[in-house]
Write a protein that binds this DNA or RNA. Structure first.
Length: 882
RNA sequence: GGGCGCGUAGCUCAGUUGGUUAGAGCGCCUGCUUCACACGCAGGAGGUCACAGGUUCGAGUCCUGUCGCGCCCACCA
């Protein structure tokens, strides 16, 4: 069997587009703001989990459901067919935008044509992927190529919420993106602080020539739409102005002075301009006072005809002109620098314009109350628990959710407008006639739903709801949701609200929040920053397993994942280490004409006795005991979502126990001249078990090696993924063996240290003696050959006190003396001095504590006991050096 | 304006209920082309755990404050 010296992931690992699917354990997704990695590892013991990804270019596939069912995880991976369809159109729109074309300007037919064209030309990535993987997606259907099942669920939910009065439609102020030309929800507005100005403008008071009120504003262009000026009724300074009017500069319009709490006497001049059509606060004030709304900025951010001479100007250009004109007229009395927060569209970064328009809203309070209760009562728990607070904070302060979008993709709102009587019909299917006037002139609302509306239904809509399907009964509620905190509100909270509302039960029991992946500078990865680590590139370079391992190592709960190429490099080294360990085994098996094969039973084995000695070799007992302990700890770590700990444990076991010691010890027996039977059974059993333990962390490498081991496939699972995950077994714990090997390790390490310190040639064999007056002597004697090989030291074993010597090193159990040339003695002496110094410090510290009455009275017995033992050890060592 | 989190070795980070001498990877130093692996082996240096108080027999860990950094939420002109 030929195995290359260096592990080449490309040869064994499927391409990126598939590996997160086939492994089912990791995904890297491209999101609107730039690629964001998510780490997803369904623990082997999980009874069900839920994971959905929103992606533009790539989509989660329902074949993974099958895969996970096969694994027996009951893990549920939901298909993103809806979003695949939507994504296709978004991709095209984005490509158009890059060429400076707004998709709307093409007209609907032309846009649709382009979408189809792109699908054909681009090789139809999404569709191809989905078809290959057996996903169901009807591409000929509807304008938006949506999954029909999902659309049905969306309509059902919409209608039911509407009938309950939880969906309403009305004219309100919404966040409007002039570039996307749609309303967006509060959550989709990103706020950022910018350095702006506060402009003070004088409005002349009618009937009192020469008198003015001064208003302050950060957005002077909106003054063109002012329909009032507000003062606070309690503000004594302006008592004489009640009932008066002012003349709006530039527009020469008479507008009233109103009394409203909108004006804060403490702020600025205490007078505030009121623009009901362009500011949320002013909008409310306008309602209170029945003020007209004059829209001076349109849906594209261009000044309307109502803006008089400024009509047709871009809103920012209009601001400059307005200011210049005010300046000329002497109305601009003061300009001061001012820090303000502006809202931008999360998707396109355009400054959001508050506009009045008619939109659909979800009344969220009643839904949120139940979702809060579910977390308070512990039906849903967060890991780490601290996220609960963030969740509550948002839920308690939740505001109604604007769900309509004036986009061309998404689920269309199931509402029809009657052309005759203007009635609105909300229905599951398109009505033939208007129920009120009987007209057939019905037209469906052109708005589509916020994508998060349908996303919020996924835990049950993808399982066939509203039908009572078997899937629904089996998988709802799921046990675990794994996601990033960046979509806690967008998605997690909404799934909770809608799931409880429509299913009467929570959609998931546990929400595991992992960190976002950051680059070496702790920056969130984003395309604009240019710091994106492209999964395609790095998996090509280091291998999927290495990238995955690197992520695992950084996946401490509650912290972000810092992903660096250095870490991936070292993970690649680890993969190679395992590869080479197996290579070593295979080469030796070949030499001794052993067929590679895993032991007959994967779980019910114990280390076997060798035929010639009828004994189980001590190193076999030891490695099984260590493996067992590692399995126990890894299982516990995974259970508690402490993946970084699991990675650390696996790494240490494989590299520093299995390779550094176990294989080195076995090597002695593999040598042709050793005269030993290598005892392949135990070696292979240990290696095979260790591979299974490592499999969730490095699926491809372990699968590849496992397949090479499992030659008798008839009696094996077809994949290592289907083999049982190693569990703790009491009978494998062997303290005796662990103590014995520890002693061996201690002697070897000490001898190596002495050698290096004396600056001796590693190839030169040293001689020396081991002194001990306890059972360690016999134990060590049994390993004389191993010690000689591993430390290149030939020892004598003496049951007597060691002679005083500068080249002696002592432990509590034994003393080691090596024969060192006189020339190297100085280094040894200096070294010994340092060690004695450290020992003295430790003894002093322990003695101080152990003589402290308060400590002895209050500290728990095991702690005191441990310190006493340690002190005894130190003192015993010290006596030898004195 | 509210809320959350972080500051531990040169770098990136662990450190589960407070308990002996604070760990890992990378980097660094020394020596090794040892027949699985130089993506390797052996050994080593390096930390007053941001700062100041407090609680405690005992604090990286708990409390208070200060400084520095980050994130989320928020309709104040």
């Amino acid at each position: 069997m030929q195995i290359e010296k260096v592990y080449e992931p490309q040869r064994f690992e499927p391409h990126w587009a598939e590996w997160w699917i086939s492994s089912g354990l990791f995904r890297a997704s491209a999101k609107a703001g730039g690629p964001v990695f998510s780490l997803v590892i369904p623990p082997p013991n999980v009874t069900g989990s839920l994971h959905i990804g929103h992606m533009l270019e790539h989509t989660e596939i329902d074949v993974t459901i099958r895969w996970h069912r096969m694994l027996g995880h009951n893990t549920l991976w939901l298909p993103g067919t809806d979003h695949a369809g939507i994504a296709t159109q978004m991709v095209v729109a984005r490509q158009l935008a890059e060429k400076g074309i707004n998709y709307r300007d093409l007209g609907r037919d032309e846009f649709e044509k382009r979408v189809w064209q792109w699908k054909a030309e681009s090789g139809d990535t999404i569709k191809r992927q989905m078809i290959r993987l057996g996903a169901s997606c009807d591409w000929s259907r509807e304008r938006f190529t949506l999954d029909p099942g999902l659309s049905r669920a969306v309509r059902e939910v919409f209608v039911r919420l509407y009938e309950k009065g939880l969906i309403y439609r009305g004219e309100y102020m919404v966040n409007w993106c002039p570039s996307c030309r749609t309303a967006i929800s509060d959550l989709e507005v990103a706020h950022s602080d910018v350095q702006g100005h506060l402009w003070h403008i004088q409005y002349p008071i009618n009937g009192q020539p020469g008198r003015f009120v001064t208003v302050a504003t950060t957005r002077p262009e909106t003054m063109l739409g002012d329909t009032a000026v507000a003062i606070n009724a309690k503000d004594g300074r302006y008592a004489d102005l009640h009932g008066k009017t002012v003349q709006l500069p530039l527009m020469d319009r008479e507008i009233p002075i109103i009394l409203d709490d909108l004006a804060d006497p403490e702020f600025g001049t205490g007078v505030v301009k009121v623009t009901p059509a362009h500011d949320p606060n002013d909008f409310e004030a306008g309602r209170r006072h029945n003020l007209p709304k004059i829209q001076v900025i349109n849906d594209r951010g261009i000044m309307t005809a109502a803006a008089g001479p400024y009509a047709g100007l871009d809103r920012f250009e209009a601001r400059r002109r307005v200011l210049a004109d005010l300046e000329t007229r002497g109305n601009l009395v003061k300009t001061e620098p001012y820090q303000l927060s502006i809202g931008t569209c999360q998707r396109c970064k355009t400054v959001v314009e508050p506009l009045v328009s008619t939109q659909w809203f979800v009344k969220t309070k009643p839904l949120a109350e139940k979702a809060i209760a579910a977390v308070e009562s512990g039906q849903i728990t967060f890991v780490p628990a601290s996220w609960q607070k963030t969740y509550f904070e948002w839920m308690y302060n939740i505001r109604d959710w604007c769900i309509s979008r004036q986009l061309w993709w998404g689920h269309r709102i199931p509402a029809w407008h009657c052309g005759e009587c203007r009635d609105i019909i909300v229905a599951r299917e398109a009505p033939a006639t208007c129920p009120r006037c009987g007209s057939t002139a019905l037209e469906q609302d052109t708005d589509v739903l916020d994508t998060w509306f349908s996303s919020g239904l996924w835990p049950f809509s993808t399982l066939g709801w509203p039908d009572q399907t078997e899937d629904l009964a089996t998988y709802y509620p799921t046990s675990l949701l794994i996601t990033g905190f960046d979509i806690l509100f967008f998605w997690v909270a909404r799934m909770a609200m809608l799931g409880i509302e429509f299913m009467g039960d929570v959609p998931f029991r546990t929400v595991y929040i992992h960190g976002l992946v950051r680059d070496a500078e702790r920056q969130k990865m984003s395309k604009t920053r240019g710091n994106v680590i492209d999964p395609l590139v790095v998996t090509e370079k280091y291998g999927t397993d290495a990238v995955r391992m690197a992520l695992l190592q950084g996946a401490a709960p509650g912290t972000d994942i810092v992903l660096t190429e250095e870490r991936m490099e070292s993970a690649r080294a680890f993969a190679n280490k395992i590869w080479n360990a197996s290579r070593f085994l295979f080469l030796n098996m070949e030499r001794s004409a052993v067929e590679p094969s895993v032991p007959e039973s994967l779980e019910q084995f114990l280390p076997h006795a060798e035929i010639d000695t009828l004994e189980v070799p001590i190193e076999d007992r030891w490695i099984f005991s260590r493996l067992n302990s590692t399995a126990e700890q890894v299982n516990r770590a995974i259970e508690q979502f402490r993946y970084h700990e699991a990675a650390q444990l696996l790494w240490h076991f494989f590299w520093h126990e299995f390779c550094d010691w176990y294989l080195e010890l076995k090597k002695l027996k593999f040598r042709e001249d050793s005269g030993c039977t290598p005892g392949w059974h135990n070696v292979l059993a240990a290696f095979e078990t260790a591979l299974r333990l490592l499999h969730p962390a490095m699926p491809f490498l372990t699968e590849e090696l496992w397949q090479r081991l499992a030659t008798d496939r008839a009696t094996r699972p077809v994949s290592i993924a289907l083999a049982p995950y190693p569990q703790y077994r009491k009978e494998l714990t062997d303290y005796e063996a662990e103590h014995e090997i520890e002693l061996l390790q201690e002697i070897v390490t000490l001898a190596r240290t002495l050698r290096t310190e004396a600056r001796l040639d590693p190839k030169q064999q040293l001689s020396g003696a081991l002194y001990s007056r306890n059972e360690s002597l016999e134990t060590a004697r049994r390993h004389a050959a191993a010690i000689q090989k591993l430390a290149n030291v030939k020892l004598e074993f003496r049951a007597e006190a060691a002679p005083k010597s500068d080249v002696m090193r002592s432990t509590a159990r034994f003393d080691l003396v090596l024969e060192v040339p006189a020339a190297q003695m100085d280094a040894q002496r200096a070294r010994l001095g340092k060690e004695i110094e450290q020992l003295r410090k430790n003894i002093a510290s322990l003695e101080r504590q152990l003589s402290d009455g308060k400590f002895l009275a209050k500290a728990p017995a095991p702690v005191v006991e441990g310190m006493r033992r340690k002190l005894d050890d130190y003192q015993a060592q010290m006596r030898k050096y004195d």
